[in-house]
Design a protein around this nucleic acid. Structure first.
Length: 654
RNA sequence: GCUGAUGUAGCUCAGGGGUAGAGCACUUCCUUGGUAAGGAAGAGGUCAUGGGUUCAAAUCCCAUCAUCAGCUCCA
C-alpha cells in the first residue's frame, strides 16, 4: 500500500498499481469524468500512469492550466494523426500547447500544401479519430530505439530533437495508428475531445531559425464541450470587432501615411484629445507623488549613447547617425529618455537630502523595428513613453517602488482594468555573467521588488533570467474585457546608468555615494496604451477620458441656435461637446451618434427651449428624462469626479 | 528581415483581356420632424507603383511598395 496526500492534506491509502484516474474514480465518478491530468509530487503526469510510491497529488480539470495543457497537447497529437492519415509521408516538427490552444509544425510531402480551405476536412478527420476514444499510451524507450524508429519514419526533425535528449528520459505516446516523440502528459484517451476548431495555417521556420526550412504551422483549439467552443468563437469575433486599427479608423483617432513612413502614427484631432486627457491625468497623479516634469530634445550626441552603453548594444539596429553639415557632429534620434535625464541629474551637485528625485517626461523616442513587426499602434517606430526616472538611495528603493505600484493601481482603477497580475523578472542565478553590477546590489534590488510587491498585495509570477542586463524589473499584465492578456506598465531597477554616468550624491557621512535609478512607465507608451484601451473598451471610453462627452441634437433646424447655446454653456464647465445640426430627422441623428460612441446625447426642441432644459439620452441606455442645462452640467461633472476619485490620493512625501 | 495572402471611390466590398460597379459617407435640393436609417438629384477612381505580353491590360506575367497573418525581434 502507498500513502497518497491530497491537496487538502488528507491522506488516502491505495494499492501500488493505482493510477491518477483510479484515485479520481475513488473520490467520485463525476470527478473521474472531468479530470484531465494529475500532478504527482509537483510533476504533471498522465492519469493513466501508475503511481507506485508515496506521493502528494493534485487532480487537474479543465479550469486548471495543467488540465488544459494535457487536453490541448493530446489534441495536437490527434491533429497530427489526422494529418498523417490525409497526407501520408508528412514529417512532424513540434506540436506544443499555447495560451489558447495548440499548433503543430509539419513538413508536408513534396507538392502538397494545406490551405485554410483544407482545415474543415482536417477537423472532420480529427473528430472521427477523437470519437474512436483511442487510448493514449505512454512508453519509455531507449535513445537507440527512438533513433531507429524515427529513421524508419524518415523524420529528420524528430531525430534532431532526440539527439538533444538524454538516454533514459525519452518517452513515446501512441494513440490509434499514430506514435509521437513526446514528454507528455496526455489524456487517457482521445474521447474527451468533443469540439474542434482549426484556426489558421501559417509558415514557421524549423526551430524559429530563418536559415532552416519553413514548415507549415497549423493552429487549433479544442474543447470538452461544444458549448465552450461556441463561446470561444463568439469571443474571437468580439476581439475582431474591437481591433484598435478598425476602431481607430471608425472614430477618426489616428492614421498612417506611406509618405510619412512606416510605423509613424499620425494623431488626428480626436485621438490627440484622448492622449491629452491621459497625459493630464497622469501628470496630476504624478504631481501628487512628488514628480517633476522635465523636457529634453529628440536627439542626442552619439557620445551620450556611447556613455550609456546603448550605442554598443543597439547602435547597429537603430535609426542611423544624423550628421551636421559643417562640423561633422554625430547625433542619434533618441531611443530612450534615460541618458538625457541622467544629464539633468548630473547638472548640479546632489545631497542625500535632495533624494529621491523624480523626473517625468512624456518623451518621444524612435526605435527601428523590422518592417514585419509593425502593428497598428502596438508596435511602432516612433512613440511617446510616459517615462520617469527616479534617483534614490539604496535604502529608499523599496519605498519608491511601492509608490510606483500605487500609481499603477490608480491608473488601472481609473481605466477599469480590474484583472491584472505582475511578473517579477530576476536574473538567472546560474548565469550571472551577462548581468552588470555587484551581487550585493542585485540581491538588494531583487529583494526590494519582491518585498514591495508582496506588501502591496500584488499577484505575481517570478521569472528567472528575464531581468534586463542592468537590473531586475516588474511588468504588469492586464486582462482585457474579452480575456486577452496585454503587457503594460513596467518598473525597472538600474545600477548600470548611475555607474556609467558617474552619478553621485553626498551622504550624511559627507562621502560621495552612487544613487540607484528606477525607470518606470505605467502606460508603457501612449500609443500602445491607447491601443489596449480601445480594445478593452471597444472604443467606449470612460466619460472623463472620451474626446467627445456630449452631443447635442436639434429636433429641427429651428432649434440649432438653442443647441449651440447649450453647447457653449457646457463648454464653460469644461464639458466637451459637439452639436449635430444636420438637416436630418431626430431618429437619424440618434442612430448616427449612438454609433459614434458618444456617452451622452442631448435632444433639444420646442419643449426644451421653453423650459431651458435638455432631454438626456445615455449611449446604449435610451431616454433618461429631462434636466435643466445646469442640472445636466452638475450631473456630468459629478460623474467625471467620481471616476477620477483615485487621482486625489496624495502620496507626496519628500 | 523571412514565408504566404491581399491591394478597385473617403469607408466596407463586388467584378474582371474590349466605356469602372454597389451600399454607406460626401454635395445640392425637397422636407422641419420628438428618441436607432425621410425623399430626390449630383459629384467622386491612372483599379497600389513601374515594367512586360497583347490589336487591346484594372484583369495575364515580372519587379517594387504597402497592408494583413505567421516566424524572428523588442533598450
Amino acid at each position: 500500500m502507498i500513502n497518497v496526500t491530497l491537496p487538502d492534506g488528507s491522506i488516502k491509502q491505495y494499492d501500488e498499481s493505482i493510477t491518477g484516474y483510479d484515485i479520481a474514480m475513488s473520490i467520485s465518478p463525476r470527478l473521474a469524468k472531468e479530470v484531465l491530468s494529475i500532478s504527482v509530487n509537483d510533476e504533471v503526469w498522465d492519469l493513466s500512469r501508475v503511481i507506485s510510491s508515496d506521493s502528494s497529488i493534485k487532480l487537474h480539470k479543465w479550469d486548471d492550466e495543467e488540465g488544459k495543457n494535457a487536453f490541448w497537447h493530446s489534441s495536437a497529437h490527434i491533429m497530427a494523426e489526422a494529418i498523417e492519415a490525409i497526407y501520408p509521408g508528412t514529417k512532424f516538427g513540434i506540436g506544443p500547447t499555447i495560451d489558447n490552444g495548440f499548433y503543430y509544425d509539419v513538413d508536408l510531402p513534396e507538392g502538397k500544401v494545406i490551405t485554410e480551405k483544407d482545415l474543415v476536412r482536417l477537423e472532420q478527420k480529427m473528430l472521427e479519430l477523437a470519437r474512436q476514444k483511442n487510448d493514449i499510451v505512454r512508453s519509455e524507450i531507449s535513445k537507440a530505439d527512438a533513433i531507429q524508429l524515427f529513421q524508419d519514419k524518415n523524420d529528420e526533425y524528430k531525430l534532431e530533437l532526440i539527439n538533444d535528449l538524454e538516454d533514459g528520459t525519452i518517452t513515446l505516446y501512441n494513440q490509434g495508428d499514430f506514435t509521437d516523440l513526446c514528454r507528455g502528459p496526455h489524456l487517457p484517451n482521445t474521447g474527451a475531445v468533443k469540439a474542434i476548431k482549426l484556426l489558421s495555417v501559417a509558415g514557421a521556420y524549423w526551430r524559429g531559425d530563418e536559415k532552416n526550412k519553413m514548415l507549415t504551422r497549423i493552429y487549433g483549439v479544442t474543447f470538452p464541450k461544444a458549448k465552450l467552443l461556441q463561446e470561444y468563437l463568439v469571443l474571437l469575433e468580439e476581439a475582431k470587432k474591437r481591433d484598435h486599427r478598425k476602431i481607430g479608423k471608425e472614430m477618426v483617432l489616428f492614421t498612417f501615411s506611406q509618405d510619412v513612413g512606416l510605423g509613424l502614427p499620425l494623431w488626428m484631432p480626436k485621438g490627440a484629445q484622448l492622449r491629452e486627457q491621459l497625459e493630464l491625468f497622469l501628470k496630476k497623479v504624478q504631481k501628487n507623488f512628488g514628480y517633476e516634469q522635465v523636457i529634453t530634445p529628440h536627439i542626442g550626441n552619439v557620445q551620450l549613447y556611447k556613455t550609456s552603453g546603448h550605442y554598443e548594444k543597439y547602435g547597429k539596429d537603430s535609426f542611423q547617425v544624423i550628421k551636421t553639415p559643417q562640423e561633422g557632429e554625430e547625433y542619434l534620434l533618441k531611443p530612450m529618455n534615460c541618458p538625457h535625464h541622467c544629464e539633468i541629474y548630473k547638472a548640479r551637485p546632489r545631497s542625500y537630502k535632495d533624494l529621491p528625485i523624480r523626473y517625468a517626461e512624456f518623451g518621444t523616442v524612435y526605435r527601428y523595428e523590422q518592417s514585419g513587426e509593425l502593428h497598428g499602434l502596438t508596435r511602432v517606430r516612433g512613440f511617446t513613453q510616459d517615462d520617469a526616472h527616479l534617483f534614490c538611495t539604496p535604502d529608499q528603493l523599496k519605498e519608491e517602488f511601492k509608490k510606483v505600484i500605487d500609481i499603477i493601481f490608480i491608473i488601472f482603477k481609473a481605466l477599469d482594468f480590474k484583472d491584472f497580475t505582475a511578473q517579477i523578472s530576476l536574473r538567472d542565478p546560474k548565469n550571472t555573467e551577462k548581468y552588470i553590477g555587484s551581487d550585493e546590489n542585485w540581491d538588494k534590488a531583487e529583494a526590494a521588488i519582491i518585498e514591495a510587491s508582496a506588501e502591496k498585495g500584488l499577484k505575481t509570477v517570478t521569472e528567472l533570467g528575464e531581468a534586463a542586463f542592468y537590473g531586475p524589473k516588474l511588468d504588469f499584465m492586464i486582462k482585457d474585457a474579452v480575456g486577452r492578456n496585454w503587457q503594460l506598465g513596467t518598473i525597472q531597477v538600474d545600477y548600470n546608468l548611475p555607474e556609467r554616468f558617474d552619478l553621485e550624491y553626498t551622504g550624511a557621512d559627507n562621502q560621495k555615494h552612487r544613487p540607484v535609478m528606477i525607470h518606470r512607465a505605467p502606460f508603457g507608451s501612449m500609443e500602445r496604451f491607447v491601443a489596449v484601451l480601445i480594445e478593452h473598451t471597444a472604443g467606449k471610453f470612460p466619460l472623463w477620458l472620451t474626446p467627445e462627452q456630449v452631443v447635442i441634437l436639434s429636433i429641427s433646424e429651428k432649434f440649432n441656435d438653442y443647441a449651440q447655446k447649450v453647447s457653449n454653456i457646457l463648454n464653460i464647465s469644461d464639458i466637451r461637446t459637439v452639436v449635430d445640426d444636420r438637416n436630418e430627422k431626430i431618429g437619424r441623428k440618434i442612430r448616427d451618434n449612438e454609433l459614434k460612441r458618444i456617452p451622452y446625447l442631448l435632444i433639444v426642441g420646442e419643449q426644451e427651449v421653453e423650459s431651458n432644459s435638455v432631454s438626456v439620452r445615455q449611449q446604449g441606455q435610451g431616454d433618461k428624462g429631462t434636466m435643466t442645462i445646469d442640472e445636466f452640467a452638475r450631473f456630468i461633472k459629478k460623474e467625471v469626479e467620481s471616476q477620477l476619485e483615485a487621482i486625489h490620493i496624495n502620496q507626496k512625501s519628500n
